[in-house]
């Protein structure tokens, strides 16, 4: 591992100043992904700016009835927070579905959003990878892509985003607060992450030096029921093969509104807008849920080893929506 300088500022302003716009400096949150990637040689920053004492680490109610979650809040604290459990049980479920108890105690909200893909080729520096080393190629297409993307991928990259929490945030329509050398701005989820296109090395829309400071959750929808569900290869401590986060509002047997996101199917938490459009005003029946899922997955371009993900995503989505509709 390349030697690095270590700074631990106590305010966001100091963190931004220590970083500037240098691409040789990286922010360190819980380190559960970054330290591993440094050890593997995937990334090798010359300086780490530890933001765990600088980024806000509180969960506060906003004047509008939502919640503002500091980027430094640990995943374990987020899932256990009474205001999160009461108003956003789906978010708590998504966080608890991820990683292990130890890793959730370390991982921060900001770091969770910025974790890198677990594509085996990205993590293996002896292999080509357009995300790690632009222009070297993508062996995953002809190699092991069982867990990789079925939607929105490009010739240069078929990686998926590994976060469960981000899928819930996409379905909730969370706003990501960012500060950087160019000032502060807000990015609505799922807009933080970007499709690979021909620049798969860029996971997000953040500019060099920008720091996530908070995630703001809109007020819970009255009458909205939510659920996060994850299909994986073992019952616990495993990345999603497909996940679904959904908020459903049914009135008199008809879908009044819904917000749906799929996880582990794309380079981004995948907002299922085609399914949402198909569902609004439709009867809340399993048949319609299936039609909506098919509308969304019509755009799927699975690879030979991950065709099963299309059926899995369809079935998981229908099941989640049916459960939400029946529970009323």
């Amino acid at each position: 591992m390349r030697p690095f300088a270590y700074h631990r500022p106590s305010t966001v302003a100091e963190a931004l100043e220590a970083t500037g716009t240098s691409t040789d400096v990286m922010y360190l949150g819980g380190g559960t992904n970054l330290i591993d990637l440094m050890r593997l040689g995937v990334v090798s920053p010359g300086t780490l700016v530890d933001v765990t004492r600088a980024a806000p680490a509180t969960v506060e109610e906003t004047p509008g009835g939502g919640l503002r979650v500091g980027a430094g809040v640990r995943n374990g604290d987020l899932a256990a927070h009474p205001l999160v459990r009461r108003g956003y049980p789906m978010l708590a479920e998504a966080v608890l579905a991820g990683a292990s108890g130890q890793l959730r105690n370390m991982a921060t909200v900001g770091g969770n959003l910025l974790q890198r893909t677990r594509c085996a080729y990205f993590q293996d520096v002896s292999k080509p990878c357009n995300k790690r080393s632009p222009g070297t190629g993508c062996p995953a297409r002809a190699g092991d892509h069982r867990n990789l993307a079925i939607l929105g991928h490009s010739d240069s990259c078929v990686a998926t985003h590994p976060s469960d929490m981000a899928v819930a945030l996409a379905a909730l329509g969370a706003q990501v607060h960012v500060e950087g050398p160019g000032g502060a701005h807000v990015v609505p989820m799922p807009g933080l992450h970007r499709l690979p296109g021909d620049e798969p090395d860029r996971d997000t829309v953040l500019a060099p030096g920008e720091l996530i400071t908070a995630v703001e959750l809109p007020p819970p929808r009255p009458g909205g029921r939510s659920r996060f569900r994850k299909a994986r290869d073992r019952a616990s401590f495993s990345f999603a093969v497909v996940s679904v986060a959904a908020v459903l509002e049914v009135d008199g047997g008809v879908v009044r509104d819904c917000r749906i996101a799929l996880g582990a199917v794309a380079h981004v938490p995948w907002r299922a807008e085609a399914a949402e459009t198909a569902l609004r005003g439709a009867p809340a029946t399993e048949e319609e849920f299936g039609r909506a899922a098919d509308a969304e997955l019509a755009a799927a371009r699975p690879l030979p080893l991950n065709r099963f993900k299309v059926a899995l995503a369809r079935n998981l989505l229908v099941r989640v929506l049916a459960d939400l509709a029946e529970a009323r």
Binding site: Y6, R8, L28, G31, T32, I35, D36, R39, L48, D50, T52, G76, S100, G101, Q102, L103, N105, M106
Partner: peptide, 27 residues
Amino acid sequence: CDHGQCGACTVLVDGRRVVSCLTLTVS
């Protein structure tokens, strides 16, 4: 494993369990 996947290195930091293999000593 030295990658945070096995838990054999678990210790308590301020009373909370963490994997020490992914914790920088300076932090």
